[in-house]
């Protein structure tokens, strides 16, 4: 069937239902690397990049719904950045201007890399994905969607339509370690999201396990210790304990980007740094 450029989500769902083995193309920043190496069949391709519905986003009540086709460049724009700052920070660290113009939020999720930059943020926020197929819609929590290293819960015929997450009141941070500022696949990443109404600090970590996850024990500890009334700075002892708890929750591996020991050390530093920044931001 060659390359089909879908104009609407419904059209895309019909094409995919009729040809379930079709390769789905969003921004192409992962897929085309594989295609260029001859490792990805491109005999039949469904291109989602012209579907306007997938580029829309809405903010209502206390939720933000982001279309799966929104580019990293657009995620980092002030309109979205003021609502979900950690997600904008994560998008800002992806690749280069060229990559951020092409790559999409939905593509990052479909690729499901342990180092996917947006994923620790979405995990920290308990994001939910809206999946669509010609036979219906369903919702899947981010932690159920990412099922392993580069594997996801998409069933035949399904397309990621949007990602919904709560809007939290309070400062947020996303931090990432790599060899330079641009064009870096993260060695370690961490998102810290404060929820003043729920009195909870939420921590998502990436590149330190097969799938990004929440450091729940560290979250519980620091949410108890955090001064929700005055947001005064925390003692060094508390900050260090939080840092250790986050590091202890990870199960990193040795690879060409870093050793397990380095990753464990670095994720603790990121936890500490993010917490100090969140305290400083809350005070101002």
């Amino acid at each position: 069937m060659g390359v089909i450029i879908a104009k609407s989500l419904n059209e895309a769902c019909v094409v995919l239902a009729e040809n379930p083995a079709t390769t789905v193309l969003a921004g192409g920043t992962d897929l085309m690397v594989q295609a260029n190496r001859g490792m990805q069949s491109m005999d039949s391709v469904l291109d989602l990049s012209r579907i306007l519905e997938l580029k829309e986003w809405t903010l209502k009540d206390s939720e933000i719904v982001l279309g799966a086709g929104i580019s990293y460049t657009d995620l980092a724009e002030p309109q979205i950045a003021t609502v979900v700052p950690a997600l904008a920070q994560a998008a800002r660290t992806v690749g280069s201007p060229q990559i951020r113009n092409a790559g999409t939020l939905g593509g990052n999720l479909a690729t499901a890399s342990p180092a996917g930059d947006t994923i620790p943020v979405l995990v920290a926020m308990d994001a939910v994905l809206q999946l669509k197929s010609s036979s219906g819609n369903r919702e899947v929590a981010i932690t159920d969607f990412i099922t392993g290293v580069k594997s996801n819960a998409l069933q035949a015929g399904e397309i990621i339509q949007s990602i919904t997450m709560p809007v939290f009141q309070g400062p947020q941070e996303f931090l990432k370690v790599g060899t330079r500022n641009a064009m870096v696949i993260s060695v370690v990443s961490l998102a810290l999201v404060t929820d003043y109404l729920g009195r909870k600090l939420r921590v998502g970590v990436g590149s330190v396990s097969p799938v990004p996850f929440r450091a729940t024990e560290a979250e519980e500890f620091i949410s108890q210790e955090f001064d929700w009334e005055k947001n005064s700075s925390l003692s060094e002892k508390v900050i260090n304990k939080f840092s250790d708890m986050v590091a202890d929750s990870t199960k990193p591996i040795d690879d060409h980007r870093g050793t397990a020991d380095y990753r464990k050390h670095a994720v603790g530093i990121l936890a500490k740094r993010a917490l100090e920044r969140v305290c400083a931001n809350g005070e101002s």
Binding site: G2, I5, G28, M32, V33, M42, S49, I99, N101
Partner: peptide, 17 residues
């Protein structure tokens, strides 16, 4: 591509119609 810089190696030619 439509006024934005991209890496042309990562654009599927037939999708740039």
């Amino acid at each position: 591509l439509d006024g934005e810089i991209v890496c042309s190696c990562l654009v599927l030619a037939a999708s740039a119609v």
